[in-house]
Simulated scan of single mutants.
Amino acid sequence: MKRIDVAYTLLFDEKTNKVLMVLNRNKTWSLPGGAVEVNETLKDAAVREAKEETGYDVQVHEVIAINEAFMDGNHVHFITFKGETLKVPDVIPKEKNILKVEWVDIEEADRLMPYHPEGISQLLNRLGARYILQS
């Protein structure tokens, strides 16, 4: 069984009450994110994946959720960071695994992402845990 770490970024626009989400090729919605590469930190992966999938330059802060699953013979850890937008892209990039990038109402985000049983709205209120890369 292979272990896979996946890093996500939760971006929230307070003015519109919307969360940035992506529609994946497998027709499921998620936050921008993806697998951590060899010799890459969780934070670096979250920032890279947000840029690749949405074109947004982001900064990530605390870890606000850790989910774990056994999928397709793999042991997968999903780490979600609270993030902020640094730069909005002029154009959303075309990414082969992403069908759509969209700002979604918080209530709809709660419905589309059942793997957070308390809802995305509750993640926004979490203080989270500090992320420390030990050297």
Rank of each mutant, 00 (worst) to 15 (best):
K2Y: 06
R3S: 15
D5I: 13
V6D: 09
A7S: 12
Y8C: 03
L10Q: 08
L10G: 00
L10V: 08
D13R: 07
E14L: 05
E14V: 04
T16C: 03
N17W: 14
N17V: 00
L20N: 03
M21S: 15
N24T: 12
R25I: 03
N26F: 11
T28K: 12
W29M: 13
L31Y: 11
L31E: 02
L31F: 15
P32D: 00
N39H: 06
N39T: 11
E40R: 02
T41A: 04
T41M: 01
L42W: 12
K43E: 07
D44E: 15
R48V: 01
E49W: 14
E49G: 08
E52I: 01
E53W: 07
Q59I: 02
V60Q: 01
I64P: 02
F70N: 01
G73Y: 12
N74Y: 07
N74H: 15
H75I: 01
V76L: 12
H77K: 14
T80R: 06
T80P: 05
F81C: 10
K82E: 02
G83H: 02
T85M: 12
L86A: 09
V88H: 03
D90C: 07
P93C: 09
K94D: 14
N97W: 03
N97C: 07
N97P: 01
I98A: 04
K100N: 02
Y115I: 10
H116Y: 15
G119I: 02
S121I: 00
S121D: 06
Q122T: 14
L124D: 03
L124S: 03
G128Y: 10
A129I: 04
A129K: 09
R130S: 15
Q134T: 13
S135V: 14
